[in-house]
């Protein structure tokens, strides 16, 4: 009995160590053929605010992953980002990023476009995409 509880606690502890219960680890991904290897948070952020058109941002539809990415990487909330894009779109300077409903779709879009940049949960990463930043 005692050992079973001990084992359970140990397993629970391991789980907590690898996947934090309260926050999803987010990674920024690009196409594997993209020559970029690493990127700072500020650099990645500028694509999602339309400040640079070098990479094409791939967005998620409204949700917790997007809110967390905005908070951690852009230091903004959703209405602020929406307002910034409204400015860019209606000046004809840029088109708003394409939005996808799941990380699997974002991954697929990034894998299909050489210049694309996106973000997904770390647990969703496979070799169709390349991780260039782990969001802290």
């Amino acid at each position: 009995m005692k050992t079973t509880i001990g084992k359970l606690l140990l397993v629970a502890g391991l789980c907590a160590a690898t996947t934090p219960l309260f926050a999803t680890e987010i990674v920024v991904i690009v196409n594997p053929k993209n020559p970029a290897t690493r990127m700072f948070s500020e650099q990645a952020g500028q694509f999602f605010l339309g400040k640079s058109a070098m990479f094409t941002p791939i967005e998620h539809t409204d949700g917790t992953l997007r809110s967390e990415f905005y908070k951690k990487v852009l230091d903004k909330d959703a209405p602020q980002v929406k307002s910034i894009w409204a400015k860019l779109v209606f000046t004809g300077k840029a088109s708003a990023p394409k939005e996808y409903a799941s990380s699997a779709e974002v991954k697929k879009a990034v894998a299909a476009d050489l210049s694309a940049i996106g973000y997904i949960e770390k647990s969703q990463v496979d070799d169709t995409v390349k991780v260039i930043l782990t969001v802290q």
Partner: peptide, 22 residues
């Protein structure tokens, strides 16, 4: 380069002055 009818860049928010949301 752009050709056609474009927003006149007279003011800072010339091209979004009618877009209240921005």
């Amino acid at each position: 380069v752009r050709l056609g009818r474009i927003a006149a860049p007279i003011y800072m928010i010339s091209d979004v002055r009618n877009v209240g949301y921005a």
